[in-house]
């Protein structure tokens, strides 16, 4: 067996998988997006840009997604980072394992079940009742963008914690001692050493959460009461309710394109940040 054949064999399973599960469906969706809705639903082949021309009708869904996805990502980052930092740097080895398991445990239950728990917590008999009891009255949480944000942060937190934890955990702790030894106060050590060296983890975590959030539909459906509408929800509606496959395909293609653009811009940003570490370290 030549090395070439071997390489092909190594790539074959993944290649076949991508072809069947990604390339072919995407191609089909792309072709559908130029078609028209069949009278009783579905698609009739055509070549029209009508579906794309109609995209502004889903502007609100795109706007919601493009607002809440970055906000959700950023909020998850702000909450995940101190947690990951504590796990990787501060906790004792024994507690580290226990706490890591606790971070994973929610993953053992479906996000659906956990979101239902949030429906109760955010509903009138949950947290608002508690706030009412301490004198803060009239707080409404469920079916608001804020409820969706809470669900998003809750659901995606482990995905953010892990890459950051890994990058902080493998960070050589002697670098922190060296920084302190050279006269840097703790927070300056954090800004100049810890933070820049954990950028790969931050980048991975943000990317992971952001991409998944762009396609999210379950959390807005459950915690947004149908009022906080993501592109994902629009797609479910278009394919399962109004059965407008052509328009649904156009929306899906647009979502993929928007995602690609966002990711490209993001990667550029991260690379630039990496290249200008001098500025980071001189802060």
């Amino acid at each position: 067996m030549t090395a070439r054949t071997r390489n092909w064999l190594l790539l074959a399973p993944a290649g076949a998988w991508f072809l069947v599960m990604l390339i072919i469906p995407l191609t089909v969706v792309f072709i559908f997006s130029f078609g028209e809705r069949a009278p009783a639903g579905g698609v009739v082949p055509a070549f029209t840009f009508e579906q794309y021309a109609n995209l502004p009708a889903r502007w609100a869904a795109f706007k919601n997604t493009m607002t809440l996805a970055p906000i959700g990502t950023l909020s998850a980052l702000l909450i995940a980072y101190p947690l990951a930092y504590y796990l990787a740097v501060k906790s004792s080895p024994k507690w580290k394992t226990i706490l890591l398991v606790l971070v994973i445990v929610p993953f053992w239950t479906s996000i659906l079940i956990r979101s239902y728990a949030w429906i109760f917590l955010l509903g009138g008999r949950g947290i608002p009742a508690l706030l009412d009891w301490v004198g803060i009255e009239g707080v409404r949480l469920i079916n608001t963008p804020f409820a969706v944000l809470i669900g998003i942060i809750y659901g995606y937190l482990p995905l953010m914690v892990f890459p950051i934890f890994v990058s902080l955990d493998k960070l050589d702790k002697r670098l922190l001692e060296a920084s302190s030894d050279l006269g840097a106060k703790p927070w300056r050590t954090f800004l100049q050493i810890t933070l820049p060296l954990s950028i790969p983890g931050i980048a991975t975590g943000c990317m992971l959460v952001f991409i998944l959030l762009m396609g999210e539909y379950l959390i807005p459906a459950l915690l947004g009461g149908g009022k906080v509408f993501f592109v994902g929800n629009a797609l479910v509606d278009l394919f399962l309710q109004s059965r407008n496959w052509a328009y649904g395909s156009a929306v899906a293609v647009t979502l993929v394109v928007v995602m690609l653009i966002a990711v490209t811009v993001y990667m550029r940003l991260i690379t630039r940040l990496g290249a200008s570490r001098e500025d980071v370290s001189i802060m």
Binding site: R174, L175, A178, D181, L197, R277, E278, S281
Partner: peptide, 15 residues
């Protein structure tokens, strides 16, 4: 007081 660390502990992200 300054220290030269075993394995040096140089900052990998700096020149």
């Amino acid at each position: 007081v300054n220290m030269v660390f075993q394995q040096y502990a140089l900052f990998p992200h700096m020149t």
